[in-house]
Design a binder for these strands. Structure first.
Length: 226
DNA sequence: GCGACAG
DNA sequence: ATCTTGTCGC
């Protein structure tokens, strides 16, 4: 599929933050999202090593949204060119993820990202960045808290509580399985929070994490190994 | 000023 | 993310 060019690349955290601030106005937020996507892609990255220079493998797995069967897979390997800094996490994974997306013959109706969308210090997490670069609907599904405050949602699958930053709703804490630790859902691009949570529930018939990310996680892990 | 801090 | 044994439970 076609991906927007990565024209400039930051060499300092300050430049990275400036890029986020410059791209943020390109987001389409609170527009109706894909309620019944035909295909959904999961993205994930595995690492070998630490800091800059770590080897990494980025995987994209496209599933049929109805049957959850694999339609297409893509993996790319590379080297981290940016250190891990909370809030700038995307700059570590973006180049390799885009390479994997580029090799896709399919154009997914929705991208499910590891991490956050607008639930981010500058409202521009990985899911937002990938959304602007692909112009596809994207959502972020985080496994642990980042920014914002929340109360625990009820114990049943489908229970939610708002993720708040002051008075602003930046995401939703969503229980995907009964009595299982919830996930953090936030919108990235071209969708709304209700649709995003609906999509995540549709992708979690059995496990805590979306089937898309589980598949991508395995694929990226295997790619690093052999 | 001191911690906390997506993956 | 990754380093890591056994263990409890469906």
């Amino acid at each position: 599929m076609k991906v927007r060019d990565l024209h400039e690349w930051p060499s300092t955290p300050e430049e990275a933050e400036a890029i986020q601030d410059r791209l943020r106005p390109l987001l389409h937020l609170d527009v109706p999202g894909p309620t019944t996507p035909r295909t959904v892609a999961g993205l994930d990255v595995s690492y070998a090593g630490d800091g800059t220079g770590a080897r990494l493998a980025a995987a994209v797995v496209v599933l049929d949204a109805t049957t959850l069967e694999v339609i297409e897979e893509s993996v790319a390997t590379g080297t981290a060119t940016f250190p891990y800094l909370p809030g700038l996490f995307a700059f570590r994974e973006l180049p390799t993820l885009l390479a994997a997306l580029n090799d896709l013959t399919t154009t997914p109706d929705l991208l499910v990202c590891d991490g956050f969308g607008v639930a981010h210090p500058r409202r521009f997490g990985l899911a937002c960045h990938l959304g602007v670069l692909t112009d596809l609907p994207t959502i972020g599904v985080g496994k642990t808290a980042f920014i914002g405050t929340h109360t625990d949602p009820g114990p049943r699958r489908g229970d939610t509580s708002p993720l708040l930053d002051e008075d602003e709703t930046i995401g939703r804490v969503l229980r995907t399985q009964h009595n299982v630790r919830p996930v953090f859902v936030s919108v990235g691009h071209r969708t709304d929070l209700d649709t995003a949570c609906r999509n995540v529930l549709d992708l979690t018939p059995r496990y805590r994490l979306p089937e898309t990310t589980r598949r991508a996680d395995r694929l990226s892990r295997d790619a690093l190994a052999g």
